[in-house]
Design a protein around this nucleic acid. Structure first.
Lengths: 264, 264
DNA sequence: CGTTCCTTTGAAACCAATCAATAATGGTGG
DNA sequence: CCACCATTATTGATTGGTTTCAAAGGAACG
């Protein structure tokens, strides 16, 4: 632990993977200088909308989704504080999916030019971003296998386990034992798992009968997590991200870390 | 167009997005100095296997897949020449999925340290890699929506359209009109679309009756591509990748591009 | 205190999986 | 070049998980 008081959600997240230099932290802080609240249910960015801005979730849950021509909706990812969202903007200059606030949120947005700047000046962070993108690709792969190969119960188990393992990393205070708040409707669970809300309801009910889970209001308790892991074929791939391959923290422009700290 | 004779498959791919400097091309060429053939059906990398190497497809088709505890298999992506594969290695130090040769292939492998080096010295390429990763994420998103929300016919239509649009970009000679070689079994199509081989067979047959496609041996003809696009809700997201946001080609270490060329 | 959204439940229809068996294809060695 | 074998493609009958349609009960909210 080092550097100035931490305010940046992104920096907080990245610090869980890596000790950051003060320069890196300052740069990340700068990305979040423009923060604003988003009401629950509000759409922050719509699919196909032209934009040059990326989003950092500072507080609350969001989700990204796609809507098909027939009106059906696929929820792609749940986003938590510290997530950097809207990368598709980089590739197309427009948003590739719709970004909606699940709960009341605070977000920060910044233009992609600032990421350009970051890639030029802080190669280690660039490499870390790339690594995180690689990890997300694996996460997408697991979801794909879940949707393609497993039944309703396994898909829901997979979703719950994915959520709880992400929360345990980024917001450990939001998980007690196997309990966590799930501020989404059964309809949303269906949109995420490729099931109808009716079948989600029946499946949740059955899982409760089987003593796999419990529900109390808006919160879920994973009673038999081991069984859920088995049912879903779940593999926790978030516990650790390899950072050994990253370039050294300070490129030639600036002095090594210890000197910076010593100079303060 | 500039620089030395092109041999690198990755450079060829990247050049379709961006004019590369000679330094960039030379660096990319270096990544492919260690090439080797892979027989059709051979597994190049197995899920969970420890490795520090990334893979560039030089020639042929490969696919990456996941196998679930119950033995079912999900094909995640088809890979074509110029694809950089195995990014999950960066995040975990091990392969996140199984990489198998569909046809006889040539691949190049290199240790991830060389990517570290590249991120430090060539920030523009680093940013381009990141952009491509973002584009792949969108591609995964579309597949997810396809599996989650559409029926068998739409999923297969989506797969075919995805393949043909990728081929048109990277290997235009492999597509004539709507015809392309598809060197995979119906079982593989099932593994990619989340269907059984039996149902794939029936669906292909029906699509043929409906004059959507035709099959001749190992090749497929998309007869009514417009209808297929409508059925699948397909959006071609590969045609263009935005490169305007990338840093300038040569960072301060080296002189600007025109001087390099002039000095030759 | 009504309105709206969400959850729950039932019945029927449907798409895709499973089980099973046969035909076609492709590759191999004699 | 042909016979043989293994793999792939095809087809039928049946089962089952999920969707659809419909409606009623709860909870949240202004």
């Amino acid at each position: 632990m080092m550097g100035p008081a931490m305010t940046s959600a992104l920096a907080k997240r990245l610090r869980s993977y890596l000790d950051l230099t003060t320069t890196e932290i300052d740069t990340l802080d700068l990305l979040e200088r423009q923060r604003r609240p988003v009401a629950a249910g509000e759409v922050l960015m719509r699919e196909g909308e032209l934009t040059d801005r990326l989003v950092i979730i500072v507080d609350g849950w969001m989700h990204s989704s796609l809507t098909l021509p027939d009106g059906s909706r696929q929820i792609l990812q749940l986003h938590f504080p510290g997530d950097l969202v809207g990368l598709s903007t980089l590739a197309w200059g427009m948003s590739g999916n719709t970004l909606t606030a699940v709960s009341t949120c605070t977000v920060a947005t910044f233009p992609q030019e600032e990421l350009t700047q970051l890639f030029r000046t802080l190669p280690r962070l660039a490499a870390l971003f790339y690594t995180i993108a690689a990890a997300e690709q694996v996460s997408f792969s697991d979801r794909l296998a879940s949707l393609g190969q497993t039944d309703a119960r396994a898909r829901i188990a997979n979703l719950f386990l994915d959520i709880i393992s992400r929360l345990r990393i980024g917001m450990p205070e939001a998980v007690t034992g196997g309990r966590f708040e799930l501020p989404v409707t059964q309809s949303d669970i269906g949109a995420a798992t490729g099931l109808t809300k009716v079948h989600v309801n029946r499946t949740l009910r059955r899982m409760e009968e089987e003593a796999l889970i419990e529900r109390e209001g808006r919160s879920v308790v994973l009673i038999d997590e081991k069984a859920l892991v088995r049912i879903a074929g779940f593999r926790d791939r978030l516990r650790h991200i390899a950072t050994e391959w990253l370039p050294s923290p300070t490129p030639r422009q600036s002095p090594p870390l210890m000197e910076v700290v010593a100079a303060r």
